[in-house]
Write a protein that binds this DNA or RNA. Sequence first.
DNA 1: TTAATCTTTAGAGTTAACTCTAAGTCAAGT
DNA 2: ACTTGACTTAGAGTTAACTCTAAAGATTAA
Lengths: 142, 142
Amino acid sequence: MSYSIGEAAKMVGLTAHTLRFYDKEGLLPFVKKTSSGLRAFTESDIEWLKIIECLKGTGLPLKQIKQYIDWCIEGDSTIQQRLNMFIEQRKHVEEQKAKWEKHLAKINFKIKYYEDAAKHGDLNVFDRHPELLKEKNKLFED
Amino acid sequence: MSYSIGEAAKMVGLTAHTLRFYDKEGLLPFVKKTSSGLRAFTESDIEWLKIIECLKGTGLPLKQIKQYIDWCIEGDSTIQQRLNMFIEQRKHVEEQKAKWEKHLAKINFKIKYYEDAAKHGDLNVFDRHPELLKEKNKLFED
DNA sequence: TTAATCTTTAGAGTTAACTCTAAGTCAAGT
DNA sequence: ACTTGACTTAGAGTTAACTCTAAAGATTAA
């Protein structure tokens, strides 16, 4: 059993246009075509798409995803490069997580600030709660 | 005391080009100029830049950041909109965090997989550790 | 069998966010 | 005063990742 490009697109949350674009960019060398020229996505192809989505979702550019796929095609001799790539990407994800945590703290502060402002209808929040000024400086100091 | 565009850029980790671009896009209406036309960034301006960086860093497009800045200029009547924006952005960050957590699990699986492959010099990982197949299917099932 | 709905290609167009260039002005050090 | 480096503007160019179009062929349901 296999899926048309539209079905595959729906399954991974992309458009058919995007899948064709990925194909053109060399990201889908594994996808075969029927005798009449239509792309036929297998279950295994869907898995490839999910890995692509995972890497893209963590910010890896399509060019580097293609590099990974080329390594996969090349075979056993590229195992170490692929391992290195995933280790680097894990590091990148950990760093991003830390950055998002800091941003979240700032956003939460702003919410607290504007909740008080909304309650009183004005922006004199630091007059009402002077201790928030210290908190703000701590959050935005770096 | 105030900072030149180059100093300000260094302080927030951007280039002077980027700050001028932001200015052109209307993101820095608060930055004043000296009598001879040079931008002079105050401490308060640096704080604005940090808020912009925070919002940009969590994926808010520059257009919406400008919208926020326009609301700030407009005054007390926009407090509720600003609060709503930060609440939405917090939701977005929480969602992203969850997504990254899932991606990280997949990346960690790949690392385990390629570590075994590297150790043995081939990709017959599931022959050596059949239980990993179940784990993989669980991670990539959705 | 015929209409509606896919899918195909090549290639053009779009969007966001920079990034750079040129030609000139300003500021700081010697 | 002079040189060096940073600053100014307007505007052009770049990059990544789509996004769409047109014209033609394939598939499906009635």
